[in-house]
Amino acid sequence: MSDAIKTQGMWYRAGPEFELHDVSMSVPTGSVYGFLGPNGAGKTTTIRLLLGLHRADRGNISLLDRDVPKEMPDILQRTAYVPETPHLYPSLTVAEAVRYHGAFYKAWDESWTDELFDRFSLPPDQRISKLSKGESGKLLMLLALAQRPELLVLDEPTEGLDPIVRRDILGTLLDYVSEQGATVLISSHLVHELERICDWVGLMDQGRLIVEMPMQQFKNGIKRLRIIDPPGTYDNTPFEVLAREPVNGGVPGEMILVQGWSADMAEYFSGVGASLHEVVDLDLEDGFVEMLRAYRAG
C-alpha cells in the first residue's frame, strides 16, 4: 500500500521554545488517520508543514506522491484542508464564499455542492462573520468535500461543535470517504470520536511522533496487567513495559502497562516467578493517556 502522506526526518523550529523533532510519519492511502496529541504537541504545526504553509528546516515531505513544497499547486488541487480556525473572508456571504472557492478547483462539483447545501441547511445569503460555529464548521466541510479531494487534512474540524453538528459533519465525511476511497488525516482532542472513525492512529507529544500504528493494533496491544509476585525488573519481555504502578486498596501485586501485548505472552510471567492475574482492556482514550504518561516519565 502506498502512502498518501509521507514525511522523513522532518524538523522545524517554530520559535525559541518549540521544535518538531525528526517527525517521520506515514499515512496509508485510503486510511482515516487520527492524529492525537495534547495541546501544544505540534499537530497543527505538522499539518501546516504538510500543506506547505511553513517550510521544514530539514527532512522530506511528500503528499500524493508529490514533493512538498515544490509541487504544492498540484498537491493542493487534490487536497482539501479544514483549518483549526476558520480562515474564510468574513465579509463574504456563504454563497459568495462557495463561488469563490469553487473557482480554483478543477474537480469542483456543482451538483454535489447543491446537495451538501441542502444536507447542511446553510443560509446562502448569510455573511460568514454572522455564522454560528456549527454553520462555519459545516461550510468548511462543504468547501472541502465539494472539491472532490483525494486527501482531506482536517485540523480539529469539530472543535467546539455540538454533538448533532459533529455527527452531521463526520457522517458526511465518512460517506464521502467510503464512496471515493479518499485518505483523511484528522486531528482532534475528541478521542472517542476518532476511535469511532479512524483505522490508523498517530500520537504526538512535545514535537515528536511517539507512536503510529493501525487503530486495532493500538487498542489491542495496549493493556493494563495485574501481576502477583512481580519480579524486580522485567527483562527480555516479548512486550514493552510502559509503566509500573501499585494496585490501590491493599490488593496484592502491581499493575503494569504494556504495549504489543497478545494472549500467548502470558507464559512469560510464570518463567519469572510471577503470575498474571488480570488483563484490563483500555479504550483509545485510556491508551492515549497512559501512553503519554509513560512517554513523559521517560
Binding site: 504553509l53 493542493l76 484542508y81 474564510l88 480554483f104
Partner: peptide, 11 residues
C-alpha cells in the same frame, strides 16, 4: 487571516 486561506489555494 494570516494568509492561510490564500496559501492553501491551489495556485
Amino acid at each position: 487571516q494570516g494568509h492561510t486561506y490564500a496559501l492553501s489555494l491551489p495556485l
